[in-house]
Structures are given as C-alpha cells and as structure tokens.
C-alpha cells in the first residue's frame, strides 16, 4: 500500500500537524519508503496467532481506589504557555 498527496494531507489533519505543499510532497516520498519496507510483513503466516498485548507475562496491577496525591494546581499549570487562576487558557471554542 502507498499514500498519495491527498492522503498525506488527510493524515496530517488527523494528527493536527500543519504541513505545507512542499513539505507534503517530501513526506509522501518518505512515508512511501517506510510503507514499502513494512510491506514484507505480508509474507508472514499469522493465522491463529494472538496479537501481543503485554510483552512481559504479568497481570496488570491495580491500586486501591484512594486519593494519594493532589492539591497541586499551581504545579500543574506552572509550565503552561497561558494560564490564569490555575486554568489553562485556550482560544475560544464555543461561540
């Protein structure tokens, strides 16, 4: 399978990455090189093989449903490019 320019732009939109026309053309070429490389996986017989979900044979740990951290609103917003009163500021999203 390979991607065309239209698909590259659609995927860029899904990934929320701004890509201009020149960049999209280069990307089309590079992405197709990668997709061409991974094509060889079609040679493998995977009938009846379970897809891997955990590489190490352990059961997912569960913790107690208890509050063990918090009251750090200042810390959490400290690195934000725009915040006010411990809120993250973003451009208006509702009219």
């Amino acid at each position: 399978m390979s991607v065309d320019l239209k698909t590259v732009k659609r995927v860029a939109t899904l990934a929320r990455i701004k890509v201009d026309d020149d960049e999209a053309k280069i990307m089309e070429e590079k992405l197709n090189a990668i997709l061409g490389f991974v094509e060889q996986l079609n040679e493998v017989d995977v009938d009846g093989v379970e897809p891997m979900t955990s590489v190490v044979d352990i059961a997912m740990k569960k913790r107690e449903d208890a509050v063990n951290d918090g009251n750090k609103a200042n810390d959490i917003t400290a690195n934000s490019p725009a915040s006010e009163d411990n809120f993250f500021m973003v451009p208006k999203v509702v009219e």
């Binding site: 990455i17 990307m27 590079k30 992405l31 990668i34 991974v38 897809p51 891997m52």
Partner: peptide, 27 residues
C-alpha cells in the same frame, strides 16, 4: 514522519492490515 505513520496505520480501514498484523508478528 513517525507521528504520521502511526496515525495512518491506526486509522480506520488500515488498523487490521498494519497494526494488528504487526502485533501478531511480535508474538
């Protein structure tokens, strides 16, 4: 590039052909 490849292989219609197959190969 890698975000784009990842987004593509997980997108509707391609998930089984790419991601699911790769996870089986990993097994």
């Amino acid at each position: 590039r890698r975000i784009m490849i990842g987004t593509y292989v997980l997108s509707a219609g391609y998930y089984d052909a790419y991601y699911l197959r790769a996870q089986k190969v990993r097994t």
